[in-house]
Amino acid sequence: MTDLELLTKMAEGDVSAGRRFVDNHQVNVYNVCYSFLQNEHNAEDVAQEVFIEAIRNAAKFRGDSKLSTWLYRIAVNRSLNFLRDNRKRRFWIEIDSLFGIGGDPGDSKDQGPVSDDDLLEQQEQKLLIGKAIQALPENQRIAFTLNKLEDLPYAEVAEIMQTTLSSVESLIHRARVGLQKRLKNYYSN
């Protein structure tokens, strides 16, 4: 049975097909999310959202690209949206503390598991390599992450990013140069 058939059956409520489909792709989807989010809990959360979106939009998949490429695209978009939301949430937390609503950082526990991970996330962000990758411009970060960390070929990266091959090459080159400078600065200081 093909991946598309499995996905269609999963969307129709076939549990065994769903389990097979998810098991086939969950590692790759999770790792893409993890590469962007650098946090296990958030990566798991977003990976589940990716599969939910895939089930919902199963009928819209036209088969122009590989199903895995389509899943990667959803994973990248979801992860970037999560990061944007997180940035906004942090802004609101700062506003909170400005008005004195937030109180102790421990009080944020009642906001759910995402807030619970803030400390861990902050610790992880202290890793200079992660910081350097996250500091790259968005397109460069996507191209670099998919090619260098996820080991995807340029052609698939171009398909995921819906751009040309030469554009991906240029983005990766700029990302390499940017990272090289950043890493040199970070580790020499």
Partner: peptide, 17 residues
Amino acid sequence: LAAGRRIAPDPGFFDKL
């Protein structure tokens, strides 16, 4: 940083989903 990456599927992932 890469310690959180997975090499095998999580058996509980589908149930949580």
